[in-house]
């Protein structure tokens, strides 16, 4: 293993040999033990990790937990609404919507156009009577 390869390994996987790929681990550990450059690179990398950890101190979040829980409690919608909006029924409801609209519009149209519906029904029954009469006369002829 060369110094560049070892430096790449440290950059990709860090300084903990447990995280190094098993195919490279033995060779890399040996390099870090026997090579001066390997020891220097490893020590430098450990110091770098420590510097990052030390310099990125995270402050404590103040009252954040209470704030989040308050938001949840005040914004909570009824359970039935959550069930509708978050379950697989939502796309089904959307798909049914045009059908429901069709029924509503159709129902309104039939109420407005009552005369033409009556006329259609009259013609339909008239045709049926003619059809029956025609069939009866045909049967008699036979």
């Amino acid at each position: 293993m060369t110094a560049d390869e070892f430096a790449d390994l440290l950059d990709c996987y860090g300084t903990d040999s447990v995280a190094w790929p098993s195919s490279l681990r033995n060779e890399a550990v040996r390099y870090a033990q026997v090579s001066d450059e390997g020891r220097r690179l490893l020590a430098k990398s450990i110091a770098f990790d420590a510097m990052l950890a030390d310099s990125t101190h995270v402050p404590v979040a103040f009252r954040l937990r209470a704030r989040i829980l308050e938001r949840i409690a005040t914004n909570e919608s009824p359970a039935w609404w959550s069930w509708i909006t978050q379950s697989m029924w939502r796309p089904a409801l959307l798909a049914i919507l045009p059908l429901v609209l069709g029924f509503v519009i159709g129902d309104m149209t039939s109420e407005l156009d009552g005369d033409s519906t009556d006329a259609s029904m009259f013609l339909a029954f008239t045709d049926l009577e003619n059809f029956v009469e025609l069939n009866e006369s045909t049967a008699t002829d036979d």
Binding site: V58, A61, L64, R65, I68, L69, I72, A73, E76, A79, S82
Partner: peptide, 21 residues
């Protein structure tokens, strides 16, 4: 998922530190 706020609070306690960091 069934809107249990106590369970939510426990998950919040468990994961908030890591997410905040």
């Amino acid at each position: 998922k069934s809107r249990d706020q106590d369970a939510y609070a426990r998950l919040l306690d468990r994961h908030m530190g890591s997410i905040y960091a």
